Structures are given as C-alpha cells and as structure tokens.
Simulated assay, not measured.
Amino acid sequence: MTLRARLRRGAALSLAASLVLPVAAGPAFADGNAAAGRKKAQACAPCHGIDGLAKLPNAANLAGETVFYLDKQLKAFRAGERKDENMTVVAKALSDQDIADLAAWYSSIEVSVKLPGQ
C-alpha cells in the first residue's frame, strides 16, 4: 500500500471514529434505580400505566423505550422545549434523579410483539 493510500485510510478511520465515539459514549446519565422509578411511576400510572402502556388515547406508551429517549423527553418537557398541557406541569417538579429513576423503570419493562396472523 502506498503512503498516500495509507494516509487516506488513516484519515477515513479517524473520521469514522470521531463520528461513532460520541454516539457510543452517549450523554452522561445519572444512574437510575428501577425500583425507585416504579414507586415514582405511581404518579404516572393514570395516563401511562404502571406497566408503561398508555391508559389514555393521547398518552405515550413508555414500556421498553430506551433510557436515552425517556431522559431526553422528560428533560425537554421540564425545560419547556417540548410542550404538553399535562407533561409540562408534571415534568417541572422532577429532579434529574427522578427522571433517571423513571427512565430506568420504564426502559426495564420488556415488550413483546406478535405480528397479525401468527
């Protein structure tokens, strides 16, 4: 392999690593406690269910969502970056630890899927 080819390959690998590493490392999250999250989720149960399956037509299913997604959405509601009449009010009272615990709980719920006709 020529020097030029090795340099191009090295540059390509460096670029790939710089794109992948931040995603793999992800943002720093507080360690959530699923057991504590289950207790805190009692307040969420009327809309989202303790099992994470929505009880209201306009509420999101939370079961099996990723910690990253749940953390990001709850913080967006808390900051007012995402708006919903109920969630904006509820999320304002949540600490970072509350959010981590709720994310740990809802993300730990296993969801199974059955395709129609099977």
Results as ranks from 00 to 15, higher is better:
Met1Cys: 12
Thr2Trp: 02
Leu3Cys: 07
Ala5Thr: 13
Arg8His: 09
Leu13Ser: 07
Leu15Arg: 04
Ala16Tyr: 07
Leu19Val: 13
Val20Tyr: 09
Val23Cys: 05
Val23Pro: 00
Ala25Ile: 12
Phe29Cys: 00
Phe29Val: 01
Phe29Arg: 01
Phe29Ser: 02
Asp31Lys: 12
Asp31His: 13
Gly32Ala: 10
Ala35Asn: 01
Ala36Pro: 05
Gly37Tyr: 00
Gly37Met: 00
Arg38Trp: 01
Arg38Asn: 11
Lys40Glu: 08
Ala41Lys: 01
Ala41Trp: 01
Gln42Asn: 04
Ala43Ser: 14
Cys47Met: 11
Cys47Glu: 09
His48Thr: 14
Asp51Leu: 04
Asp51Arg: 05
Asp51His: 04
Ala54Lys: 08
Ala54Ile: 05
Lys55Val: 10
Leu56His: 10
Pro57Lys: 08
Ala60His: 15
Leu62Cys: 13
Gly64Trp: 06
Glu65Asp: 09
Thr66Leu: 04
Tyr69Asp: 11
Leu70Tyr: 00
Asp71Val: 01
Lys72Met: 02
Gln73Phe: 14
Lys75Arg: 12
Arg78Gln: 15
Ala79Phe: 08
Gly80Tyr: 08
Gly80Leu: 07
Arg82Pro: 03
Arg82Ser: 02
Asn86Lys: 15
Val89Trp: 02
Val89Glu: 03
Val90Ala: 12
Lys92Cys: 11
Ala93Gln: 15
Ala93Met: 11
Asp96Val: 00
Asp96Met: 01
Gln97Leu: 04
Asp98Tyr: 06
Ala100Gly: 09
Ala100Leu: 05
Asp101Gly: 11
Asp101Pro: 11
Asp101Ile: 03
Asp101Ser: 06
Leu102Lys: 13
Ala104Asp: 08
Trp105Arg: 02
Trp105Lys: 02
Trp105Val: 04
Ser108Glu: 00
Ile109Met: 01
Glu110Phe: 06
Ser112Arg: 07
Val113Gly: 10
Val113His: 06
Leu115Ser: 02
Pro116Gly: 01
Gly117Tyr: 01
Gln118Cys: 07
Gln118Ser: 14
